[in-house]
Computed example of a mutant assay.
Amino acid sequence: MTSPKITLSTAQLWERRYRNQPSTSLPDNEILRLQMAHHSVRSYRSDPIPEGFLEIGIAAASSAATSSNLQTWSVVAVKDQEKRNRLAELAGGQVYIAQAPVFLAWVVDLSRLERVAQREGHSAEALDYAESFLMGTFDTGIAAQNAVVAFESLGLGTVYIGGLRNHPEEVAALLELPERTIAVVGMCVGYPTDNAAGDIKPRLAQDVVLHHEQYEHHQEAERVEAYNQRADAYQQEQGLSSRRWTETVSMRVAKAASLGGRHVMRHVLQRLGFPLD
């Protein structure tokens, strides 16, 4: 199957993403167009994904960079309807988890290294430290994003599911995860419904996120306010309620309660076998 044809140039996609024109000429190729046209899909057809699509997506994930070649991630592919229904409940009632034909649970996996070390006659003391967990989290995220690009190149839609961390111990039990593993993020994969086309959501401009030589935030307030206006325009174009991005995100970080119960994550991680020394 050929990849979906994206007719807009990278310059046009830049305008959709940032709501302004690029200040310089941009390279343009099929991969860049695919990446810049990304949007989350939250409505899926029931059609199964074709044979080989899952495997090539995971091969793309395996082709991502991994720290010291430790390969500290695993992925659990869930097609069983009852399990997907339960995962949808655990993730806060996100119905598209039950709707998409495949759900992927991306797992920070230090258990495999522990078993390898034991078979080689070594201890695995380094796995007790926060650095090992951070490294595993980075590697898992990098791998997952490689898979997203691969799936989208095949015409599939995806959406990340952070709600998998709402009840990590219940998820671990459902997926029979061993100690020293945790499903840090989920991913729906499937063919979008006709009404799931979506649009390109504006992001913070590069004058906010791109720093040259040193971190600089002296003009951040006005630049972020300009983004407020672009983001609100997008909301209204989509028929959604008007809102300020800064107000929304401020409320998300204002109190521990905003974390939806995840403020106890360190204790949960320790119970799942991550001492975080």
Rank of each mutant, 00 (worst) to 15 (best):
V76T: 04
A64E: 02
D232P: 00
R266I: 08
R119C: 14
P202A: 09
N195L: 04
E120S: 15
D47P: 00
P22V: 07
G163E: 11
T66F: 09
R271S: 10
R16I: 14
A205D: 13
L272P: 03
H167P: 01
A91Q: 03
T7Y: 15
M36C: 06
K5F: 15
L87S: 05
Q118C: 04
S68L: 10
S153A: 15
H263A: 08
E170G: 04
S67E: 07
G136V: 11
T10K: 07
R16L: 12
P101D: 11
K255E: 06
V41F: 00
R244N: 03
Q219D: 14
N85H: 09
G52M: 07
R262V: 02
M36L: 13
G162C: 01
L104T: 14
T10D: 15
L54E: 14
S74D: 09
M36Y: 12
I97S: 11
E15R: 15
T137V: 05
Q270P: 12
L210P: 02
V159A: 10
R262G: 03
E213C: 07
H267P: 06
S25F: 10
R271E: 00
P168C: 05
E213K: 06
E169S: 13
H211E: 04
T7E: 15
P27K: 00
Y44L: 03
H38F: 08
I6W: 06
Y18N: 12
V171Y: 06
E222G: 07
F53L: 02
Q35S: 13
R45M: 08
N20W: 04
K83N: 12
I6F: 03
P27V: 12
Q94M: 08
P192V: 07
L127P: 11
D139S: 15
L87P: 10
S241Q: 14
S3H: 12
Q71F: 11
S3V: 13
L276Y: 08
Q235T: 09
Q71P: 10
S241N: 11
A173M: 11
G260W: 03
H217E: 13
K79L: 11
S250E: 12
A77N: 06
Q118N: 15
E220Q: 14
A11M: 14
K201N: 02
M135F: 13
L32S: 02
S46H: 11
G121H: 06
Q236Y: 00
A60E: 02
R243Y: 01
T72A: 11
L210Q: 11
V102Q: 08
V159S: 12
L240M: 13
A98R: 14
L204V: 12
D199V: 05
G136Y: 09
H167Y: 03
Q81Y: 13
A221V: 13
P275G: 02
S250C: 02
V102R: 01
L154N: 10
A61N: 01
Q238V: 05
P178A: 01
T66N: 15
K83E: 02
R84W: 02
F138G: 09
S62V: 05
Q99G: 04
A231Q: 09
N146S: 15
S67G: 15
E120C: 12
K255D: 04
G163V: 02
P101W: 09
P192G: 09
D139C: 14
E176W: 00
L164Y: 01
R271Q: 09
G261A: 02
S242I: 01
V95K: 15
S62C: 05
V171N: 10
E89Q: 07
W73R: 08
F274Q: 00
Q270F: 01
M135Y: 10
L240T: 08
Y227V: 14
